[in-house]
Design a protein around this nucleic acid. Structure first.
Length: 473
RNA sequence: UCCCCAGUAGCUCAGUCGGCAGAGCAGGUGGCUGUUAACCACCGUGUCCGUGGUUCGAGUCCGCGCUGGGGAGCCA
C-alpha cells in the first residue's frame, strides 16, 4: 500500500488503465491511473512533459507535471527507462501532436533507471539491440514487432478454429530420428562427462527413454496421424534444427504452423495455403494499423504495397516444369543454371516472385528426386504432389504436399531415400488401417512475421533468437 | 561450411599520404520555452577487437585469431 500522503485510500485501490484505452477515449476523464516507463522528458522551469509508454501500443501518452507536486524535484530527474505510476486527469492537450494528455495529480516513482540504461531516445542499430535482447522489447520498433507477432499468433488459431481444425500438441521430445528435415539436437539425461558405454559406444538403453532422443524438427508426421482421426488439424509449436546455417532467414529454434487435412488433395492444400496467408495479412492490416505504420515508414517503404498485393490478388500457380521454363527463357543471368531435376535456388525463387510476377507464386509438382519420401508420387511417376509458396523478399514461406497414402508406394519411396521403415512403423500403420488421401503444409512463423513487418533478419522477429553460437538470453 | 565487408567514447560514426584520438547524440551542470527526436551555454569520457610482425614511428600496412554484418548452401 502507498504511504505517500498524495494517495487517498480510494486512489491506492484504483486499477491502472492501459494507455491505448486513454488515447482512444472519446471524452475527458476526471481521474485515471496509468503505470509505465518513461520514454523521454522535456523540462521547463515550473513544469515538465513526460512521455510514458506502457507497451499497450506504440504511442506514448504525455503527462504534464508541475511545481505543485510534492516530489516535483524528483520528477524532474526522471530518466529514460524509469517506471512510474501516475494519477491524474485525462484532458484535451492544448499542444500540437497529441489529442489527449494527463495533467498529473501525483507521480509515484516505482523505480529509477540509472544512466547506464543502454536505450537512448535516438535510434540504435539492430546489431546493437541484439546484444541486449532482454531490453530491446522496450524500444518502439521491437515493441511493435512483438505486438504484431502476438496478433498473428492469435490470428492463426482463429483462422483454423473458425474452419473446424483441431489444434494438436505434437511432442517436442521425439524418438524418431529420421523425419528427413535437417540435423537434430540430441537430448539426454546421461552424465556426458562419464556416460555408460556398451562396447565403445554410448549405451543409450540406459538413458531416460531407454533409447536416444531428440528435439523435434517437425510435427508433421504426428499431425498426419491426428488428421486421420480428427479430420482437419493443425499444430503450432517450436521446432529445432541443429544446422550450421548463418543467414538472416534461419534460426535453430523457430515456430512452425502445420495444418493437415484428411480427404484432401494438392489443390485443396494450395487453396488452404493461399487463403491462410491472405487471411493473416488482411488480419494484420486491419488490427495492427499503428504498428505497421512504423514499419512502413522506417523499415520498408514498399511494405504497404506488398501487403496490399498479397491481400488483394489471387496467387499465381505454376507447375515446377513451367517455372523452369520461365527461368530458362528469361534471358536473366543466374549464378546457378536451371534445368529440370535440380532444385530452385534462392535467386530463382526471388526472380519469379519479385521480378517476373511481383506477387506470391505457388510452384507445384516437383521432381520426386529432390523431395522427401512422404510426398505423394504423381501418375507420371517422375514428380510428386508437392507445392511451395514463394513470396517477395522472403522466398519460400510455405512448403507442403499431398501425402503418399498408398502403403506399397510409401514403402518403396522409403527404401529409395534410405529411411529405415522399422523406425516409422507407427507412421506406416496409418496407411494400413483406413488410409485416405490427405495433405498439409508447414509455414515458418518467423518468416510470416518478417513478411508482415518488413523486418529483414529472422533474429529480430523472435524474442530470443537461437543461432549458431548464440544462446545468451 | 564457403565468399565478401566491418570492428575507434555509453550509442552512431569520421579519422586524408603511416606522424599529438575527433564529431554528433546520450550523460552532468546552469538557463529558457505548452514542449514534441525541444532549444541555448558549459563539462567529462578511449585496452582504437585481440595477437604477432614491418617501421624511427601503426587506429592506419601485413599475417593469424575472435566477434558482428551481407550473400550463398541447407531449409521453414
Amino acid at each position: 500500500m502507498h504511504t505517500d500522503l498524495n494517495f487517498s485510500g480510494k486512489e491506492a485501490k484504483m486499477k491502472r488503465t492501459r494507455i491505448i484505452a486513454l488515447l482512444l477515449s472519446d471524452q475527458a476523464i476526471g481521474h485515471v491511473l496509468i503505470k509505465g516507463w518513461v520514454k523521454t522528458r522535456r523540462d521547463a522551469k515550473d513544469f515538465s512533459f513526460i512521455e510514458i509508454n506502457d507497451g499497450s501500443c506504440l504511442q506514448n501518452i504525455q503527462v504534464v507535471a508541475d511545481l505543485g507536486m510534492a516530489n516535483f524535484d524528483a520528477v524532474k530527474k526522471l530518466s529514460t527507462g524509469s517506471a512510474v505510476a501516475v494519477h491524474g486527469a485525462l484532458r484535451p492537450s492544448p499542444g500540437k501532436g497529441q489529442k489527449w494528455e494527463i495533467q498529473a495529480l501525483s507521480i509515484e516513482i516505482i523505480s529509477i533507471a540509472p544512466d547506464e540504461f543502454p536505450l537512448q531516445k535516438k535510434r540504435h542499430t539492430d546489431e546493437f539491440l541484439r546484444t541486449i535482447s532482454h531490453l530491446r522489447p522496450r524500444t518502439n520498433k521491437y515493441g511493435a514487432a512483438f505486438r504484431i507477432r502476438s496478433t498473428l499468433s492469435f490470428a492463426i488459431h482463429r483462422f483454423f478454429q473458425e474452419r473446424g481444425f483441431a489444434h494438436v500438441h505434437t511432442p517436442i521430445l521425439t524418438g524418431s530420428d529420421c523425419e528427413g528435415a535437417g540435423e537434430l539436437f540430441q537430448v539426454t539425461a546421461l552424465d556426458m562427462e562419464n556416460p555408460p558405454r556398451s562396447g565403445g559406444a554410448i549405451d543409450y538403453s540406459r538413458d531416460f527413454f531407454h533409447r536416444s532422443a531428440n528435439l523435434t524438427v517437425s510435427g508433421q508426421l504426428e499431425a498426419e496421424l491426428f488428421a486421420l482421426a480428427l479430420g482437419d488439424v493443425y499444430t503450432f509449436g517450436p521446432t529445432f534444427r541443429a544446422e550450421n546455417s548463418n543467414t538472416s532467414r534461419h534460426a535453430a529454434e523457430f515456430w512452425m504452423v502445420e495444418p493437415e487435412m484428411a480427404f484432401s488433395d494438392l489443390n485443396d492444400d494450395m487453396d488452404l495455403a493461399e487463403t491462410f496467408i491472405r487471411y493473416l495479412v488482411t488480419y494484420a492490416l486491419e488490427n495492427c494499423r499503428e504498428d505497421l505504420g512504423l514499419f512502413a515508414g522506417f523499415v520498408d517503404k514498399t511494405l504497404m504495397d506488398t501487403l496490399g498485393i498479397i491481400a488483394a490478388k489471387p496467387f499465381i500457380r505454376i507447375p515446377y516444369a513451367e517455372a523452369v521454363d520461365i527461368l530458362s527463357r528469361s534471358g536473366h543471368h543466374f549464378n546457378f543454371d536451371v534445368s529440370f531435376g535440380t532444385d530452385l535456388q534462392t535467386e530463382h525463387e526471388r526472380y519469379l516472385a519479385e521480378t517476373h510476377f511481383n506477387q506470391p507464386v505457388i510452384i507445384y509438382d516437383y521432381p520426386k528426386t529432390i523431395k522427401p519420401f512422404y510426398m505423394r508420387v504423381n501418375d507420371n511417376g517422375g514428380t510428386v504432389a508437392a507445392m511451395d509458396v514463394i513470396v517477395p523478399r522472403i522466398g519460400e514461406i510455405i512448403g507442403g504436399s499431398q501425402r503418399e497414402e498408398r502403403l506399397d508406394v510409401l514403402e518403396s519411396r522409403m527404401a529409395e531415400t534410405g529411411v529405415p521403415p522399422e523406425n516409422l512403423w507407427w507412421y506406416l500403420d496409418s496407411r494400413r488401417f483406413g488410409s485416405v488421401p490427405h495433405s498439409g503444409f508447414g509455414l515458418g512463423f518467423e518468416r510470416l512475421v518478417m513478411l508482415v513487418t518488413g523486418i529483414s533478419n529472422i533474429r529480430d522477429v523472435i524474442p530470443f533468437p537461437r543461432t549458431p553460437g548464440n544462446i545468451e538470453f
